[in-house]
Nucleic acid binder design. Structure first.
Lengths: 198, 198
DNA sequence: TTAAAATATTAACAATGTTAATTATATTTG
DNA sequence: CAAATATAATTAACATTGTTAATATTTTAA
């Protein structure tokens, strides 16, 4: 990396950090070019020297958030025994992360990139994220002969749609329930989902 | 209803119709006060004599869309035999409606009302919508003794979250699949969901 | 037919994303 | 080291957004 590239990456980092701060705090609706620039300590037009547009910048945060969420999930599920029970714990922790940071949920699942083609890698990462979090444990369950490869794919998909669906209803307040009830319900959903898999 | 009330309802209707047209056509992102007013044939400020704000107007369309969707579903599932198979057909038709009108999906599940408290009835209607579409057939399945009341609630919830989750991923292009593959996948999800219920 | 009330429209404001013009800073060259 | 050039940051500007205040118009009442 040349000296210029280092400086450029540093500048991008300032804007990305600012964007992350706002997304985690006031959320996606509070994101604006001027807001980000103020948080980063630069003028709003400077942003356009380093990013195509504000959506481009916002989607740049996805990888960092995924890493953060991974750690969050790891810490919350470390003492859970590997296997199906761990997959459940991971899914709950994953949902708790988004409940804690609704702005990140909006970014991951609601916001549309300006140009889908160039953002395809990012979008693909989002799509496979929960699967990757559970990867180890899915493998384990298959090794133990509790699940076929096909059944694993099917369950993983259901898990993906279920978690996202529940989060949509809860975060967008389509059902009138509290935090505790929400996660009780999530546990019940998972029980039903994994019922056959003992 | 007094003469004034009739006129007021008529005016509200003009704006609601205009909003529905835009939502069904260019979608929620194309909704703007000036757009709606142009479509309705009035000035943009006139809107505020009949609605608190633009979100208030937009959420006024929910009931009409639900009726429209109900008819859409009825027509698409009329020759299906009542019971679980019909519930599956209804769910597929329901999803097809939103795939045809993504703007209506955004309104139903993504958009947040300005004041949740006053919009609680509307939001509750959205939450229970799919359930109401399937009501008859759920009852039938229970009457036939194929399902307990508890199991019905559980399945209905899973169905609700699954459909919404799938639609989020598809409409927001988080997974790179086409129309046909999407509904094939949906069918597979439903097969798994209803597997125990033969 | 005129006075009053109701209703619609234009003007205005603050905030948004983005681009062009301009200023300030670094870098290169004589 | 100083002057010329290239780079990068800032302010100005524009179009669009939702909403409110100030006007103009139409309808109703006297």
């Amino acid at each position: 990396m040349t000296k210029n590239e280092i400086q450029e990456q540093r500048m991008r980092g300032y804007f990305i950090d600012a964007t992350r701060t706002i997304l985690k705090g006031e959320g996606l609706k509070a994101i604006s070019v001027r807001n980000i620039a103020r948080e980063a300590g630069y003028s709003y037009a400077t942003l356009y020297n380093y990013f195509k547009d504000v959506k481009d910048l916002v989607f740049e945060c996805v990888c960092d958030f995924q890493e953060e969420c991974s750690e969050y999930v790891s810490k919350m599920t470390s003492e859970e025994a590997p296997g199906i029970r761990k997959i459940r714990a991971i899914s709950i922790a994953y949902m708790k992360y988004f409940v804690e940071y609704p702005g990140i949920f909006e970014l991951f699942f609601i916001e549309k990139p300006t140009d889908l083609a160039t953002r395809q890698p990012t979008v693909a990462r989002i799509n496979t994220f929960l699967d990757r979090l559970c990867e180890e444990d899915w493998e384990l369950v298959i090794q133990r002969g509790l699940l076929s490869e096909d059944k694993r794919q099917e369950l993983a998909r259901q898990l993906k749609y279920l978690t996202t669906g529940m989060l949509v209803f809860y975060l967008h307040r389509r059902e009138d329930i509290e935090y505790k009830e929400f996660f009780n319900n999530a546990q019940r959903q998972f029980s039903a989902l994994f019922a056959e898999t003992i």
